[in-house]
Amino acid sequence: MKRLSKYRRHRIVAPLLLIFALLGIGTTFQVAGATTASVMTAEERTKAIAEGKEIFLRGCSSCHGLNAEGSSISPSLIGVGAASVDFQVATGRMPMADMSQQAMRKTPVYNDEEVAALAAYIASLAPGPEIPTDDMLNYERDGSIAEGGELFRTNCAMCHNFAGQGGALTKGKYAPTVMGVKPVHIYEAMITGPQAMPVFSDKTLTPEEKLSIIAWIKSAEKEPQLGGLALGRVGPVTEGLLVWTLGLGLLVGIAVWLTTKAR
């Protein structure tokens, strides 16, 4: 298996891409949008901030307050930065559908430009983490898969599971799967620490190390099923279930056939 690195593209990627496309062009061109945001002229920026404020007042202020100062039910957004807005809104987590639950990934409500405008508005309130640019996200060039694996197992696997499938936290909270998440959003999550997730600072987990983690996640995502059905990649529980259902089921079934009289 010399060329294991050259995994054929996983076929699930195609339908996933299709879904992404259907979800709105916004998601696909997120990074591009982000790039333009960083090279916006002053005039464009002012315009975007104004637009963003309008969107904010319409869609977000009921919970986060008229000036993003937060309320009893939601946190202040002053100083959370553009990266945080991009992560929360472009992955569909915000606006939340149901306050009782943890915000989960779903179809984004706002399109690309609206997200960029919102991000620009929130970033204008106080400085915070910026959306990483395309050049900053070249994980194939700047990241190492093997090193990323080690970093992932030290920093991420305890919540997101060894294969990035997600896992349980306390009181019904959970760490979501990191499979099928765009690199920019993985990066933003690490620098902003959304919801229960802590922040991974650039000094303790350098940008190159973050890219290595992304490189490993993307490699795990593309990894074909080397030993047959992956059974969810969640460890021995599904294996045990399969033995007690299919394994013993087949064997006992055959034992019944073996001991019934032929007609």
């Binding site: 060894f162 896992g167 349980a168 047959g228 059974l231 969640v234 021995p236 299919l246």
Partner: peptide, 30 residues
């Protein structure tokens, strides 16, 4: 047949053991 079609203990995904690491859903066999 099970060995052919269903993966069990994909240890390459777990990575080598070190006491400073752990995975969510650390379970023993059934």
């Amino acid at each position: 047949l099970l060995g052919a079609v269903a993966s069990i203990n994909p240890l390459w995904l777990y990575g080598p053991y070190t006491p400073g690491q752990v995975t969510a859903g650390s379970q023993p066999d059934w």
